[in-house]
Design a protein around this nucleic acid. Structure first.
Length: 902
RNA sequence: GGGUUUGUAGCUCAGUUGGCUAGAGCGCACGAUUCACAUUCGUGAGGUCGCAGGUUCAAGCCCUGCCAGACCCACCA
C-alpha cells in the first residue's frame, strides 16, 4: 500500500468528527464537578466568520481540557434568530418580489421568515463541526424555541409585577425606512457636512441645522449664567414664523454652551435627545412635527406631508422671503446618526415603548462585579462595566420587527363612551400573542404588535439554556463556568446577562468572563464586505486543515486585543500537525517492526501486519477503520481507562533521554495547566508547540534512534497525544484511533498526571545536550567534514558515545590518555575536538569573541555583587543565583582561555 | 471633551505580582540531507523595548509628561 507521507486533514477530519459525535463523547458524563460553557449563538441562517474561528477553538480547548480532566463537562451550542440581521435580508427578498411587510399580517410575516430561515439553515452548524466544536448537539437551543419564549414571558411578567416595566413616550432612534426604533448602540454616527442656518428668532438670533423642526419648538434655552439673556428667562415670547406667530417659553439650562453661536438654543423636545431632557427638567410640552414616515405632521401647517429634507428646503426658502435668515454656514460639519443597515438618517421621534427601569438591576450587577463574584479577563473590562452600570439609562425593549418574540401585552380597546385617563390601566399582560384581539369579561383588548429586543431574550441565555429555573436536567450547570465572547458584546450582551441573571435567579450567570478581541485582516484593518478583505474560515480549513487554523489563530493573541489574522501562523499550525503526524509515523514503524518479530496476526482489519500501511492507509480503508469504532457503548469512560500513567513493565524509562523527555513533558503538562487556568491560550499553544517539536521530535526521537525501545516510544506518543488533543483535536485523534486497536477515543481519555522520571538522569541528558550543541556550534563554522571527538576520563561521554556521535554528526568518539586539538567549552566535560592547528587557528577569532562576551558578563555580575545595596536588599535567593552565575561564567572564561591556549 | 487601549527584531505578536543575558512564529543569511517529516535538519544575523524625566539595589514592566495610532462613550443647537 502506498505510504501517505503527509497528514491530509481533508481526508480524516469529517470522519473523525462523525466518530466523536456518534460516540456520545460530547455529552456530559454526570460524574465529577460540573464544567459548562454556553456558546454565543451564531446566526442560524448565516455563515461563520473568522471571529467564530477564534471563538470556537478557545471554547473547544477549554471544553476538551476540562473533559479530559474528569469534569462533568457540557458546551451548549445555540442558533440565533438574529432578529434584525435576518429581517433585513428577508425584507430585501420581499422587496425583490415587489412586496412589502405591510402586505401581510404579523403571523404570516413571522411564518414566512421562519421558512426563509429554515431554507438557509444548517450551514452554520456544519461549519461548527468543521471547526471541531465538541459541543453537545442534543442540547442545542434556538433563540425562538418555545422554552425560550416561555421563560422570557415569565421574566417579563416578573418585571411587570415588580413595577420595573413601564410604557413610556420616549424619543427613540427611529429609522423611517425600516420602521423600527434602534438602541443607541445600533446607530452609526458619521461626520457630515450640513448647512448651519443663523436665523432671527423673535427677539433672539440663533443657529440651527434643522429649521424644519421649528414647528415643534416649545422653548428657547440659554445658559443660567449668561447675563445677556437673563432678563428673558421665565418669560413667554412671541416668535414670528413662516406659518405666523407662535409662543415659546425661555428657560435657563446648563446644557447650553455659552460660546457656541449666540448662546441661544431653540428647544424641540420631540426631535432632539438633548431637548427632550431639557423639556423633562422644565416641564415643557411635546409637539411632534415629524411623523413615523419621516414626513411633516399637521403642526407644520402648509408644509404638512413633505418629507423632512424637502420641508427643510421649503422652510428655508419661506424664511428667506421673510428675511428671517441672517446667514448660512455651508461648511458646517456635525455628526449625523444613520441606520447601520440602510444609511437612512435616524430621526429622534417620540414613541410609546416598553421600558425596563434598569437602575435597580444595574446597581445590583455593579455590586456583584465590585465584590469580585465574576472574574473578568482582561480585568479592566469589569471596571468598564461598573462605570457603564452607573450611567445606564432605562432600557427600551420594544422592537418594531415581526421576526422576534412577540411582546405579551394587550391594550384595552377604548369604546367611544370611555373616558379613561389612567394610561397604566389600559395595558394587561397576556401570553395569547397569536390572537390579535382577546376578550376578558366582555372587555376587548388588542395586542401590541412589537417584539422584544433580542438582547432582552439573549440576556437570559445562561439560565434559559440550562433550564435552571425549570430545574431541568442541565440545571446543575448554572451558573456556567465561563462566558467566552467578543469585547464588542460587553455592554449589549454581557451586562444584560448579569443584570437579568441576578434578577431572575439570584445568582451570577457565570463565574468568569473571557473576552476575545476582534480578528483583523492581515494588515490590521477591520474586515468588512465593502472593503472586500473578509477571510472565510472555511477556505482556510480547506487549504490548511481545521487544526492548523485553530493553532494559527490562537497563536500570538491576547485577551481583548484586536489583532491581525496571520496566514504565516496558520502555516506554522499546519507544519506542527505534520510534525506530530511524522512523530507518530516514526514511532508506529518502530512498534510494528517490533510486533512483527513477536506475533503474526495483530491487524484488526485482517490485512497483513504492516504498521506503515495501517497508519497511513489510503483514505477509504483509513476512513472505514475509523468509522467502525465509536458506538456509544464501545467508549469506556470508566475507572480502568483512567490515566494513571499506564506504563507497561517493559516500557520503563531506561536511557537518560527517556528520563529527560518525561521531565520535559511533565513540565509542559504543568505549564499547560497553568495557562489554561489563566486563559492564556497563546502561551499554551506555544508550550505544546515547542515541547512537541523541539523536545519530542528534535531531541528525544533523534536520541531514540541509537537505542530504540518501542514500548517506551509508544508511551511517549500516548502522553504527547493527550497533551496535544485540546489544541489539535483532529490530527491527534486520527493518530490515536489509527495506532490503537482497542476501540478507545482520545477525546474521552484522561489528561496526564505526574510522570515518572529520574531527575538526575534527566540532568545528565541536559549535559550531553549541552555538549552536542557545543559541538554543532563549533563544527558549523568549520569546513563541512566529519570530525573526531576525544575525551579523557569522562564516564558520561564514554557511556553515551554513540548518542553524541550520531547527534553531533561526528566521525568517531574516542577515549584518549591525553586530550589534543580544540578543548570544548561545554560545562563539566573533558572533551576535545581533534582538529589540525590550522583549523584551530581559523576558529580562534570566534572563540575570542566568545571570551570577550563572557568577560563582559562577568563584569556585569561582579558589579552587581559589589553593590552593598544589592546584596542587602535583594531577596537572598537572587543574590545566591547571581553568585552561582558568576562562578559558572568564571569557569567558562577559564575553559575558553584553555581552548585559546592563552 | 471623558474613558479605555496600543507603540518591543523586516512582518505579526508574547513577555502574568519589577529579578532579562528581552523571546516566538514567519521572513532573511550560511550549511546539511536517500530510508518519520523540504510542511525537514543544523547554525547564525537582526532590538539604545515610541521619546524625556522620575521611583528602585534592579524598570520592557511602576509614576509623570510628551509624540503617534486604535477603540468606546458623550456630544454643540
Amino acid at each position: 500500500m502506498k505510504l501517505a507521507k503527509a497528514y491530509e486533514p481533508k481526508t480524516y477530519e469529517p470522519a473523525i468528527y462523525a466518530l466523536w459525535e456518534t460516540s456520545g463523547a460530547f455529552a456530559p458524563t454526570g460524574k465529577g464537578e460540573p464544567y459548562s460553557i454556553i456558546m454565543p449563538p451564531p446566526n442560524a441562517n448565516g455563515n461563520l466568520h473568522v471571529g467564530h474561528a477564534y471563538m470556537i477553538p478557545i471554547e473547544d480547548i477549554l471544553t476538551r481540557y476540562y473533559r479530559m480532566n474528569g469534569r462533568d463537562t457540557i458546551w451548549i451550542p445555540g442558533a440565533d434568530h438574529a432578529g434584525f440581521e435576518t429581517w433585513v435580508v428577508f425584507e430585501r427578498s420581499l422587496e425583490a418580489a415587489e412586496k412589502s411587510r405591510f402586505d401581510f399580517p404579523r403571523e404570516e410575516l413571522y411564518k414566512m421568515t421562519w421558512d426563509f430561515v429554515e431554507q438557509n439553515r444548517g450551514n452554520m452548524e456544519l461549519q461548527l463541526r468543521a471547526l471541531g466544536a465538541s459541543c453537545d448537539w442534543s442540547n442545542l437551543v434556538f433563540t425562538l424555541d418555545q422554552k425560550v419564549v416561555d421563560r422570557v414571558y415569565q421574566t417579563f411578567q416578573k418585571l411587570w409585577d415588580d413595577k420595573l416595566i413601564y410604557r413610556g413616550k420616549r424619543l427613540v432612534n427611529y429609522c423611517t425606512k425600516h420602521q423600527t426604533s434602534f438602541a443607541d448602540i445600533e446607530v452609526e454616527y458619521r461626520e457630515e457636512k450640513t448647512p448651519l442656518y443663523y436665523i432671527k428668532y423673535g427677539p433672539f438670533e440663533l443657529a440651527t441645522t434643522r429649521p424644519e423642526t421649528k414647528f415643534g419648538d416649545t422653548a428657547v434655552a440659554v445658559h443660567p449664567s449668561d447675563k445677556r439673556y437673563a432678563k428673558w428667562v421665565g418669560q413667554t415670547v412671541v416668535i414670528p414664523g413662516v406659518n405666523g406667530d407662535f409662543e415659546v417659553q425661555v428657560v435657563a439650562d446648563e446644557m447650553v454652551d455659552l460660546n457656541f453661536g449666540t448662546g441661544v438654543v431653540k428647544i424641540t423636545p420631540a426631535h432632539s435627545f438633548d431637548d427632550f431632557e431639557v423639556a423633562g427638567r422644565h416641564n415643557l410640552p411635546l409637539k411632534q412635527a415629524i411623523d413615523l414616515d419621516g414626513k411633516m405632521t399637521a403642526v407644520a401647517g402648509r408644509f404638512e406631508g413633505l418629507p423632512v429634507l424637502e420641508a427643510r428646503a421649503a422652510v428655508v426658502k419661506a424664511m428667506e422671503e421673510m428675511g428671517l435668515i441672517i446667514k448660512v454656514d455651508k461648511n458646517y460639519k456635525t455628526r449625523i446618526g444613520r441606520c447601520y443597515k440602510c444609511g437612512t438618517v435616524i430621526e429622534p421621534l417620540p414613541m410609546e415603548q416598553w421600558f425596563v427601569r434598569v437602575q435597580p438591576l444595574a446597581q445590583r450587577a455593579k455590586q456583584v462585579i465590585e465584590n469580585g463574584q465574576i472574574k473578568f479577563v482582561p480585568a479592566q473590562k469589569g471596571r468598564e462595566l461598573v462605570r457603564y452600570f452607573d450611567e445606564l439609562r432605562d432600557w427600551n425593549i420594544s422592537r418594531q420587527i415581526p421576526w422576534g418574540i412577540p411582546i405579551p401585552a394587550f391594550r384595552r380597546i377604548k369604546k367611544p363612551s370611555d373616558d379613561s385617563s389612567n394610561a397604566s390601566d389600559e395595558w394587561i399582560f397576556d401570553t395569547r400573542v397569536d390572537k390579535e384581539e382577546i376578550d376578558i369579561d366582555g372587555v376587548k383588548y388588542r395586542r401590541d404588535e412589537d417584539t422584544f429586543d433580542t438582547w432582552f431574550s439573549s440576556g437570559q441565555w445562561p439560565f434559559i439554556t440550562t433550564e435552571y429555573l425549570e430545574k431541568g436536567d442541565l440545571a446543575r450547570f448554572y451558573p456556567t463556568s465561563v462566558m467566552e465572547t467578543g469585547v464588542d458584546l460587553l455592554r449589549q450582551w454581557v451586562a444584560r446577562m448579569i443584570m437579568l441573571g441576578l434578577y431572575a435567579t439570584d445568582d451570577v450567570p457565570f463565574r468568569d468572563v473571557f473576552f476575545h478581541g476582534l480578528v483583523l485582516d492581515e494588515h490590521g484593518v477591520k474586515m468588512s464586505k465593502s472593503k472586500g478583505n473578509v477571510i472565510n474560515p472555511m477556505d482556510v480549513i480547506d487549504e490548511y486543515g481545521s487544526d492548523a487554523l485553530r493553532i494559527g489563530i490562537v497563536m500570538n493573541r491576547s485577551a481583548g486585543q484586536a489583532q491581525a489574522f496571520s496566514t504565516a501562523s496558520v502555516v506554522a499550525g499546519r507544519n506542527f500537525c505534520n510534525k506530530l503526524w511524522n512523530i507518530a509515523r516514526f514511532i508506529e514503524s518502530k512498534i510494528s517492526s517490533n510486533r512483527g518479530e513477536n506475533s503474526s496476526s495483530e491487524s484488526s482489519n485482517g490485512n497483513s501486519v504492516n504498521g506503515d500501511a495501517e497508519m497511513t492507509g489510503s483514505p477509504p480503508e483509513g476512513h472505514g477503520d475509523v468509522m467502525s469504532r465509536g458506538s456509544l457503548e464501545r467508549i469506556s469512560r470508566d475507572e480502568e481507562l483512567k490515566f494513571s500513567p499506564r506504563l507497561p513493565e517493559n516500557a520503563k524509562p531506561q536511557t537518560i533521554a527517556d528520563h529527560w523527555i518525561l521531565r520535559q513533558l511533565d513540565d509542559a503538562r504543568k505549564q499547560l495547566d497553568k495557562h489554561i487556568k489563566n486563559y492564556r491560550f497563546a502561551e499554551a499553544i506555544d508550550t505544546i508547540y515547542h515541547v512537541v517539536w523541539d523536545d519530542v521530535a528534535d531531541w528525544f526521537i533523534e536520541a531514540s534512534k541509537t537505542t530504540s525501545q518501542p514500548e517506551f516510544l509508544d508511551y511517549v506518543l500516548d502522553v504527547t497525544l493527550r497533551l496535544v488533543h485540546p489544541f489539535a483535536p483532529f490530527v491527534s485523534e486520527t493518530i490515536w484511533t489509527t495506532v490503537h486497536d482497542d476501540e478507545t477515543l482520545l477525546i474521552a481519555q484522561i489528561w496526564p498526571e505526574k510522570l515518572p522520571f529520574d531527575q538526575e538522569k534527566a540532568g545528565e541528558f541536559d549535559q550531553i545536550r549541552d555538549l552536542i550543541s557545543n559541538l554543532r556550534l563549533v563544527t558549523a563554522q568549520l569546513p563541512s567534514d566529519k570530525y573526531d571527538l576525544l575525551y579523557q576520563d569522562d564516564p558520561l561521554i564514554a557511556e553515551h558515545a554513540d548518542l553524541i556521535q550520531a547527534l553531533a554528526k561526528l566521525q568517531s568518539v574516542k577515549s584518549v590518555k591525553r586530550g589534543r586539538g580544540l578543548r570544548l567549552a561545554a560545562a563539566g566535560c573533558q572533551a576535545w575536538l581533534d582538529l589540525s592547528d590550522e583549523l584551530i587557528y581559523e576558529h580562534q577569532t570566534r572563540l575570542e569573541v566568545r571570551l570577550a562576551e563572557t568577560r563582559q558578563e562577568i563584569a556585569t555580575l561582579d558589579k552587581r555583587l559589589a553593590s552593598p545595596s544589592y546584596t542587602a536588599k535583594a531577596p537572598a535567593h537572587l543574590v545566591e543565583e547571581t553568585r552561582s552565575q558568576l562562578k559558572e561564567k568564571r569557569a567558562l572564561e577559564a575553559r575558553l582561555m584553555v581552548e585559546l591556549g592563552v
